[in-house]
Structure formats: structure tokens, C-alpha cells
Simulated assay, not measured.
Amino acid sequence: MNMDVDLDGLFLHNSTYDYDVDYEYKEDFESRGSQAVLIPLLYSVEFVVGLLGNGLLLAVLVQKRRFWSVSDTFIVHLSVADILLLVMLPLWAAQAARPCGWCFNGFLCKISGAVFNINFYCGILLLVCVTVDRYMSIVHATQLYSHKRPHLAHISCLVVWLISLILAIPDWVFMVAKKYSAQERTLCVHKYSQSGTDWKLVSRLLHHMLGFLLPAAALIFCLSCILRRLLGSSKGLQKQRSIMVLLPLVGVFFLCWMPYNITLIVDTVRSSPKDADDPEGSLKTALMATSALGCLHACLRPLLYLGLCGNFRKQILATLKCTAVETESSLWELGVGEEVLPDQGPEGQQLKQMTDVDHQTAPSADEWTNTPSSGVTCSTPEGV
């Protein structure tokens, strides 16, 4: 009986297997799959809701053009900046959803990157202008903008747009459609040359300092002074309407943009040349998600107006019903350009009381003509 065992076939078919090259981790696949679904879905919702809300907002402002106020000037510029951002959202949604990534030309890449930062700069700087006006009016009883000088509001908005365009110059220069051979995808990213590494630091510092930290410090200082003045005032409840919409606007702006700016600061500190060739690193993924969250404010701002401003709701309903409603009162209750008188001291209150007593004791014109005094009746001749 032959007891030999033939092991030749077993060793002939033995071969090595490179798991690093041929095996795709399930977690990475699921991560890319979730990005390709969630981020385009978020961009699509922001695009539809934002265009609808800002479209109705501009329609209301067009109907109200005969009673244009200083607040309307800032609202229009904020809405225009939001619409420019919303138009670019389908391009970024396509980049996240399509396997090829950025399938458009490099010029659209530069435009989309510049518009993204222009919207951010315009949003925070215009809020600074409105907040400074409220600070000067409530705390110092000085009007920065007024109905008698509407050109100052237009000049301020033009200066804001100019500053935003200047701060967005690095996006026009360094935004390119870069192809990554390892992932076989093309992405719209910043590409700095080896000799231009300092330009990345300069552009990031400009964004962090001039675009975020300094305006944020101005907003926090002005709003804290306003709230302290209103809380310590006997007429604070009457004056709170002037910032009833301003506080939610600033709060929503920071809630939407704070995660992106914090992630960008971390990326600036921890960035290395190796990270430039890794488009799917943890920080890159975080920047993509937080930038989508930052764009959410473009569709939330009209919803804030709709929920907080009663006059704006009435005008929206009139627009949808195709009926004309003319009102000279403010739609937004921002109080921009409206004078707020300072609190009166003891002397002013005493003078006000004396004035009220005089008005109460002084007879009116009808009393002078119909009330007898010292037996003499004062009457008005007929026909007069």
C-alpha cells in the first residue's frame, strides 16, 4: 500500500498577497460614500431654500423701493452676497458627488473659491457696520447713518465689497483644479509653489486676523456695551427692539462660521508639505464638512427675518397674494439710521415732569374759547 503524500500542488499554488495594495478598508469606503451623499444633499437643501428665501426678500425690497431705508441698504447687500454664494453650491455638490471630483475648468474653480471667501468677508463686515451704528446710537447718542445722509450707507457697503475683493486675491491666484493620481480625482484646492510657501501663511493670517478675529472682537465689544447699557437703563425694554433682530443675526453667523474658522486655524498650525498630497486627510474632510455648514447661513438669514419681523411677514404674504401693501415703517426693526435718545438724568426727569404738569394744567384752545373766566365769556364769532 502506497503511503506517500503528494504536496506538490499545495506549494505550487502558494503566493504572497499584498494587503496594503489590493485590500480596500471598509471604513474608508463608507467614509467616502457618506461624503458623496451627505454633503451634496446639504448643498442642495441650502441652494433651494436659500434662493427661495433671498428671492422673496429681494421681491419685497423692490416693492418697498419708494420707502427705502438705511436698513434696506445693508439687507440688500447681504442678500446679494448670499445669492452669489448659493449659485456656486451646485459646483461644490458635484465635486463631492462625482467620482471624478472637480470636472469643470480651472476658471470656475478660481471663481467659486473667491466667491466663498467674499461672501464670508461681506457678511461679517456688514454686520460690523450695522452693529457699530447701534453702538454709537444707543451708547453715545450719535447717529452714524441717517435718512438725511443715505450716501454714507452706500459708501460703507462699497468699501466692504472692495475690502472683500482685496482679501480674496489669494483665491484668484492660488485656487487650481489639481489632479491626485493616487485617488484618480481632481479637486479644486489651493496650490502653493515650493517657493511660495510663505504666501500660504500670509493669506491665512489675512483671513484669520482681518477677516475673522478683528471683526469678531469689534462685534463682541459693541454688543456687550449695548447690552450693558440696556440692562442698566429704565427704558431698556423699549430700546431692545432695535437689536432684537441684530443679536440673532450675529449669533447665527458665528454658529455657522465658527467651526470652519477653528478648523482652518488648526489646519494652518498643523499643516505640513505631506498634507498637500493627501486630499482625504482628517483635516481636509473636516474643512469640507465645516465649509458646508458655513454656507448654511445663506439660507437661514431670510428665515430669521420671517420669524422675527412681523412687518416682513405681512409683506411676504402680500407679495404671495399679489396685493400691494405700502408701509413706511421698518421691515427689519434693525434701527439703523434711527436716533435713540440717551437716558435722562435726575434733572432731565424733573424737567420732563414739570413739562408734563404744564401740559396738564394749561388750557387748550377749546377751553379758552368756551370756559368763562371772571364772569366774562369768551366766544367765537359765527362764521370764524
Rank of each mutant, 00 (worst) to 15 (best):
Q349T: 08
H297C: 13
K26A: 12
Q183L: 10
L12Q: 09
M88I: 10
P90F: 03
V5P: 00
G375W: 05
P99R: 14
L91M: 11
S330E: 09
Y23Q: 10
F120D: 02
L247T: 05
N2P: 06
L56N: 03
D277M: 12
C109A: 11
M209E: 03
C295L: 05
R270F: 13
C295E: 01
G101Y: 02
E24S: 07
L57D: 01
S34R: 14
V21S: 08
D366A: 14
R66S: 10
S272L: 11
E326H: 15
D277A: 14
L78A: 06
P302C: 01
W172Y: 13
A36P: 00
V357T: 15
S156D: 05
K314R: 15
M136I: 07
S234E: 07
A276C: 06
S164R: 07
S31H: 13
Q350M: 08
G196P: 00
L303F: 02
Q95P: 02
A324E: 09
R301F: 01
V202E: 12
T290H: 07
F212L: 15
R229Q: 13
N261K: 13
L152K: 13
L51W: 05
L125N: 11
R149H: 13
Y121S: 07
V160A: 04
A94F: 14
K284D: 10
V139A: 01
C378R: 14
L287H: 03
P346Q: 13
R149F: 04
Y25P: 04
N54G: 03
N54D: 00
V5G: 00
K321P: 01
V49H: 09
Q240R: 12
L287T: 06
E27F: 11
R229A: 13
L52R: 06
C299S: 12
T73D: 04
L246A: 08
C378S: 08
R241P: 00
Y145M: 01
C256F: 07
Y23I: 11
R149S: 05
I169P: 04
M354V: 08
I155N: 06
P372Y: 07
K239M: 07
C378E: 03
W172A: 15
R301N: 06
L42P: 09
L125F: 12
Y305R: 07
E30N: 15
V62N: 04
K235D: 14
V202W: 10
L86E: 02
Q353R: 14
K274L: 12
L300W: 00
A182C: 07
V250A: 05
P248D: 01
S329F: 10
A93L: 05
S156N: 05
E338H: 14
W332V: 04
G251H: 03
